[in-house]
Amino acid sequence: MKTALLFGSSGLVGGHLLNQLIKDTNYSKIKLFVRSVPEISDPKVEIIKTDFSNLQNHKEDIKGDDCFVCIGTTKKNSPDKDEYKRVELDIPKEVAKIAKSNLVNSFIFVSALYANPKSSGEYIRCKGLVEEELKELNFPKLGIMRPSFLLGNRKEKRVSETIGIFVFKFLSPLLLGPLKKMKPIHSETVAKTMIRAANENLEKNIFESNEIDELVLNQS
């Protein structure tokens, strides 16, 4: 029986991931790293109120088998450039370094479509830089998810994302070949593939959006 470490459980993918981990018999404990304590009561869940500005204070807590990171923000929620960079880049990198030092076996990270450390777009660049750090840390098992527009019920509405989903859903039949990865994907599907990546030998560590979808379809 394994211990899962989960960062970002309040988000779209993280919420599904938490629910699936609770049901998964491979895991006897789920350590939930949160800013504010959620209303959840389950014997498998250990809630760790986390100071994300001082993650080294939680070094002893970041111990387990599989670390799942779904942390992210938006320019609306983090208008300050330094705070945005801290959430999208610094926190995932520091969590990964601590996890590696604590001999955590697998690290599964929600990145982004077209993640690229040299991109001019800040969001894509930050995700790409985290990916580079993860590869250098050389975890025994690494899973990087690059979902397209995420489908699901968000707590907050994102106008630009809603428009993007509508457009790409409409265009989906035309998105063939290398464009397949642009099709919107359900957040629950991403969560399922993250757990598979931690528990199976999938022969690769970067999963484009269409590959995430295909893995779940093939499983069912």
Rank of each mutant, 00 (worst) to 15 (best):
E88R: 02
P147A: 07
N19P: 03
M194K: 10
P140I: 09
L142C: 04
C67H: 02
Y84G: 01
P178A: 09
G72F: 02
P147H: 07
R158S: 15
P117R: 10
D61H: 13
E214D: 13
N77I: 09
G121A: 14
F52C: 02
F7Y: 08
H186I: 05
Y27G: 02
P92F: 00
L55T: 04
T193V: 14
V87I: 15
L6H: 00
N54D: 14
F166P: 05
L5N: 05
N138P: 03
S101F: 00
P147L: 04
E83R: 15
N26P: 07
A191S: 11
R125F: 05
S53H: 12
K118D: 14
E188L: 11
L18N: 03
E88F: 01
Y27W: 11
Y123G: 00
K169W: 14
K44Y: 06
N138G: 09
E132S: 13
L150I: 10
L6P: 00
N210K: 09
Y114G: 12
E133A: 06
L18F: 04
S187C: 09
V34W: 04
F166N: 11
T50E: 07
Q219L: 13
E94W: 01
P43R: 14
E203P: 01
F207S: 02
N102R: 03
N153Y: 11
K118Q: 15
K180D: 09
T162P: 08
